[in-house]
Design a protein around this nucleic acid. Sequence first.
DNA 1: TACATATTGTACCTATCGGTACATTCAAGG
DNA 2: CCTTGAATGTACCGATAGGTACAATATGTA
Lengths: 188, 188
Amino acid sequence: MRILAERADIIPQLAEVFRTFGYEGTSLSRITERTGLGKGSLYHFFPGGKEEMASAVLADIDDWFEREVFTPLLRETPENGLAGMWKAVRCYFQSGGRICLVGAFALDGTRDRFAAGIAGYFGRWTGALTTTLVRAGWTDRAAEDAARDAVLGIQGALVLARAMNDPALFSGAVDRLEARLRQPAPSR
Amino acid sequence: MRILAERADIIPQLAEVFRTFGYEGTSLSRITERTGLGKGSLYHFFPGGKEEMASAVLADIDDWFEREVFTPLLRETPENGLAGMWKAVRCYFQSGGRICLVGAFALDGTRDRFAAGIAGYFGRWTGALTTTLVRAGWTDRAAEDAARDAVLGIQGALVLARAMNDPALFSGAVDRLEARLRQPAPSR
DNA sequence: TACATATTGTACCTATCGGTACATTCAAGG
DNA sequence: CCTTGAATGTACCGATAGGTACAATATGTA
């Protein structure tokens, strides 16, 4: 067994730091402070420095969603896939207590640095959700709109919940988003 | 007439810098570069430095929404108030080409610095919108939920549009949000 | 024109930024 | 053991961060 750190162990801690302070607000000294790892270790695991650290975090998030959300959405029945997605979303974002790092990075200049990863994450999410809704009987157009509205609703709920410092706001919004995707043919 | 700068002239330029780089990513040198004003002028108008600059920008945004959105919402007929809000939203966010600084600040550590202002902005927005919907015949509960969903939808649409680098995505989402508020009694 | 005030440019300060170099320590395999 | 390579701590680098001090300049008014 290893006592020393492994790259994979560090990534969740890095993610928390970036989530807390944003990309620009995250300094190496803050990373050291939160992870207990000096620059020596940090640059050993991530020779590309801060940018590679953030990149690794994004890739890790991407993997998690691919495994826990996107793939189930496409492989299981639409009902199970959707149920799994909402459960995963509530769990991952800790009922509104944790923000989406990908969304946060998208808003400022950090986006340019990770444009491909950010667009890929949201593209595959809305894509998988659209496909699922079509399989559930929605028309192509309605499914695409509804998928975007769901994903964007989650992001907006995270913004609003954090702005108002009220995580319950996230839970309530997610309940309504989930309900909206359950009616097979949209009434509007 | 004055040739030298006035505080009010600087604020929109400051807003653009903060929008582009975020609070932490905005350095004094970048502000100087974009505004053409040296540290002398900057600290003359904003003795509190960067924090006061961002604070002034937030207050300016707040004023604009108060004047152009919240007040009309409460003073005019619900139909006119709502129509005005959607027009103002499309215009202000430049059809998805411009993000909401208040929402961006809410997501990272910057929130703690401006917590009151950020919560106030979103609180007054959802509050005015709730009141308007009640006046339009919605039940209290449905109005409150719908108001939150609309505001959060706008924020999420900005995130998604920027993430996908597709401003049209914002316009489409706003069309649907507007339509959803138009049906007096929600079908669900 | 002369004065008072508002505005601006220059020089400088300390702290910290991201990053590098490298010697040291550690764990495991032969 | 002893070697080897992964992992780490320490010291350091130039650049830039936010901020201050203050002299110089511009402006409106008497």
